[in-house]
């Protein structure tokens, strides 16, 4: 129950932050990516503002094994650069540019984004489900140690 309550709070704070920063406005995201247009640097300030409290949080997390509600702290894990990460990010970047929406803002703007926003979210969900068999193949290959391009901890 406490976990769900804090999850609502985190989700709400995330959504308010996306809205206040202007990231639910597709013109701001596309303005950041369009370096040959009227370039908009806002996204860099959003990233910078978000990374400050996050970096502090990771320093605190590094000294603990258990979170406040008793779950195990998320580990960094093995740092593999594999084809899934690379091609997935290429595709994501392309779609991000075309619509000016990524998953967080797509969800945060669902309540005021009209039909277009809902269609985007449904297409995104379909894309996620279509990725399932590829994810399975990738994790099988990773388990066998294949197709790892760079590996570090």
């Amino acid at each position: 129950m406490a976990r769900a309550l804090f999850a609502v709070l985190a989700g709400g704070l995330f959504g308010i932050g996306l809205m206040v920063s202007g990231m639910t406005d597709t013109t701001k995201v596309q303005g950041w990516l369009d370096i040959f247009g009227d370039w908009d640097p806002t996204l860099a300030f959003v990233m910078g503002g978000a990374i400050i409290p996050m970096a502090v949080a990771w320093r605190i997390a590094a000294r603990r094994r258990i979170s406040a509600l008793g779950t195990i702290m998320p580990e960094l894990g093995e740092q593999r650069l594999d084809p899934g990460l690379i091609w997935g990010s290429v595709l994501f970047g392309a779609g991000w540019a075309l619509a000016g929406l990524c998953p967080g803002p797509a969800l945060a703007s669902l309540g005021f984004g009209g039909t277009g926003g809902l269609v985007f979210l449904l297409a995104m969900a379909a894309g996620m489900l279509a990725a399932t068999p590829f994810r399975r193949t990738l994790s099988r290959r990773a388990a066998r140690g294949e197709e790892t391009w760079i590996s570090a901890r």
């Binding site: 899934g84 290429v90 991000w96 996620m128 990725a131």
Partner: peptide
């Protein structure tokens, strides 16, 4: 765009 964002983010 939605399909690419969904597919790409899950793959990555």
């Amino acid at each position: 765009a939605g399909l690419m964002v969904g597919f790409g983010t899950r793959l990555a």
